[in-house]
Amino acid sequence: MATGKNAFDADAAKLRVNRYRKRILEVSQQVQALHIGSAYSCTEIVDVVYNGLMRHGEAGGTRDIFLMSKGHGCMIQYAILEERGTLTRADMDAYCTPTGRLGCHPDHGNPGIEAATGALGHGLSMAVGMALAERGRKRDTIVYTVLSDGELQEGSTWEATLMASSFGVKNLVAFVDNNDFQSLGRTSQTHPSFYPVVEKYLAFGWESVQVDGHDSAAIHDAVASRKGDKPLMVVAKTTKGKGISYMENVPIWHYRSPNKDEYQQALKELEAAL
């Protein structure tokens, strides 16, 4: 099965993710809250999916699907869709305002958004349904989705996990943004039995690997090298708020926006990272 084995340029990816983080930081100054830590946590994952794995209908070919199951991380999706021209600068300027169409969670009907998410534990079932529809139409479309590790506490996610392998869904590639944080603390502390994740997915009949979720090349390689005879779960070990020192692994940045001083510091750190 085709997996979108484009030649992957890790240096270009580094520039892109830095650009996206800056753009999200910029938008953060328009609103009080935008789940910045959650978006930074999965920046490399979503970038690799859009810019390294998905086929976008080039020359009338296959158009793969991306569904942001962890809807609260959608700022990275918006930033990428803006750069791709699917969303506009005006869309981003009007983010979370009465004249805009973009909110804190992806909404069905907006350009580039395949499904409304935000309530956790919905995305994987919808992704399975999409994959089955594409298979039924004998199309080679691949459905990509990104889950939060919090979503792995939803029973519905495990229902969908069982369905994907039971129905032999091969055209599904899922990532879990495993930053080990949820609102009330570290997942490893609140739910010690949450781990190991890879072994759980293997036991459920998936192919599964663990990668450094901020190593773009490794993320790409994990998918490009998949066997392809089962659904794939990539467990991406990530850091919440990745890239900004004062945000990393600090729960408050799940939600709030930086003030002016914090913004300047974050901008300096992102510029220094290049």
Binding site: H108, E114, A115, G121, H122, L124, S125, M126, A127, V128, G129, M130, A131, L132, A133, E134, R135, G136, R137, G155, S156, E159, A160, L162, M163, F167
Partner: peptide, 28 residues
């Protein structure tokens, strides 16, 4: 058989999968 999907005792997934099918133009 491809259009008859038995999720077993998993009703949340039943609805979610039906939604996914409909999002791709099916009539579930």
């Amino acid at each position: 058989p491809e259009r008859f999907i038995n999720v077993g005792v998993a009703e949340q997934s039943m609805i979610g999968i039906a939604a996914g099918l409909a999002l791709r133009g099916c009539q579930p």
